[in-house]
Amino acid sequence: MLESLLAEVVESVEALKSVIAASTNPDEVQQLQLVQSRGLGICDVIRAEMARVGERDVAELATAAGKYVQAVSQFTAAAEGL
């Protein structure tokens, strides 16, 4: 589960890269990079959990990561339509 969760977040972060590359607005780029770094932060937490030994309760982590993926997905879809 964590592996697929990580893959989804990584995919979202990758999707943001192309939006950033296409942007000519420095403010927009900066804000998108912040969103990107948040995604990478989530990746770090997921990786830390993957490396952890013992009982795991990842429901909340999955919810948070899912929310991130959904938000980025909506944004990139909207960006493509603009």
């Binding site: 998108l32 989530i42 937490v45 948070a64 929310k67 938000a71 980025v72 909506q74």
Partner: peptide, 13 residues
């Protein structure tokens, strides 16, 4: 919207 949404997500994490 994206900034708002991902901020919540990160705080959740």
């Amino acid at each position: 919207d994206l900034l708002e949404a991902t901020q919540d997500a990160f705080q959740g994490v």
